[in-house]
């Protein structure tokens, strides 16, 4: 693999670095749409959507990491994903996510009744996070 260009993916959260691998391609969902990142790319800054990061393994399969927003920074063949929360597919607690989904839905109902746009927006973000975790862990 010496001749094949590689990049390092590093997912950091306040509770430490949770994922670090080298790969030949990583696929991220930015707020604008999906973005594939290959080695030797120009330095890049982008804001991330609440979605997943997919990192291609040697055998062609993808590692999946759920991220809740944040941003990515790419330079010197190092892709840093800086998010306030992120989990690898294996680490997702689907029961917890399920509960979070229910909670978020309740909050949305309540906020709609109370006509509280701020709260509604926040609840929707929580719901998106929960759904994101669930969809990744159930795949």
């Amino acid at each position: 693999m010496a001749d094949k260009p590689e990049l390092t993916v590093n997912v950091v959260t306040p509770d430490g670095s949770i994922y670090e691998e080298t790969t030949d391609m990583a696929i991220c969902k930015t707020t604008q749409g999906e973005l594939g990142i290959l080695p030797n790319r120009l330095p890049l800054l982008a804001s991330l959507a609440i979605d997943e990061i997919r990192v291609r393994q040697d055998n062609g399969e993808f590692d999946e990491v759920a991220v809740s927003g944040g941003f990515l920074e790419f330079s010197d063949n190092t892709l840093s994903i800086v998010a306030s929360a992120a989990e690898r597919k294996e680490d997702i607690d689907s029961k917890r996510a399920e509960r979070a989904r229910e909670r978020a839905q309740e909050r949305i109902e309540k906020a709609k009744k109370a006509h509280n746009p701020d709260e509604l927006r926040r609840a929707e973000v929580s719901l998106r996070r929960a759904l994101n975790r669930l969809s990744i862990s159930n795949r």
Binding site: P14, T30, Q32, L45, S47, G70, F71
Partner: peptide, 29 residues
């Protein structure tokens, strides 16, 4: 080496909007 020129997506303003709250959160934490 952070003096590099970055491509930004979607725009610097939009990124700042994401990063600033994260920055404030991380400072307090």
């Amino acid at each position: 080496g952070y003096n590099l020129e970055y491509d930004t997506e979607p725009s610097e303003d939009a990124i700042l909007e994401v990063i600033l709250p994260q920055y404030a959160e991380s400072l307090l934490y």
